[in-house]
Amino acid sequence: MLGEGILKGLAETARNFLGSYVSKDRLTTVQFPEERLPHIEAARSFPFLVYDGEDWQQGMRCVSCLICEKECPPKCIFIEKSKDKKPDATGKPQFYPVVFNIDVSVCMSCQICVEVCPFDAIKMDVEFELSTNDRFGGLLWDKERLAKSNAYYGKIHPTEAAAVDAQLAEERAKLEAKAKLAAEAKTATVATPPAQPLRETSETTEGSGA
């Protein structure tokens, strides 16, 4: 009969309406600022720059290779490469970004910069309460605003960070071993004391230990 379905639908919505006053579990809404959902590990908002150690300027992993700048689809990354090299967290002299800006009003959270970075220097953040009353400057994030420690990364994406850390450690260990071999070979043939070891910081020893 015509209208039967409409009546059924009306009954259903009436049940929803009245039920929402009776049983609290019907209402799935989370009253945001007061209540919060537990953080989801796979969540992502905008990129940030990872640094090792304590000093964000010294420990920044980014070597200013400009790959992310080129790959970013909406072109919201702006990097100015340094002229000189400075030792990074591992003590190796590297280029570093003098300016590293991301315009988060343009960024579309696609994570492509993260995928292409060969140095695991840029990762996705989960912070989302980013409103500001400065519509231009407030959303153009500079190097300092972007820098976050590796420990923070480990906190927001534990699994992913553990994998990255393990991989980095492995790479370093390999390098270390290679360096040792090369050194040994040198000592064996030339029998002279080895030249400056390639890497000699706490970080490397840690890496070789692992």
Partner: peptide, 10 residues
């Protein structure tokens, strides 16, 4: 408010 309740929102 009514529409919200019908859709199980506040």
């Amino acid at each position: 408010k009514g529409l919200g309740r019908i859709q199980n929102r506040y």
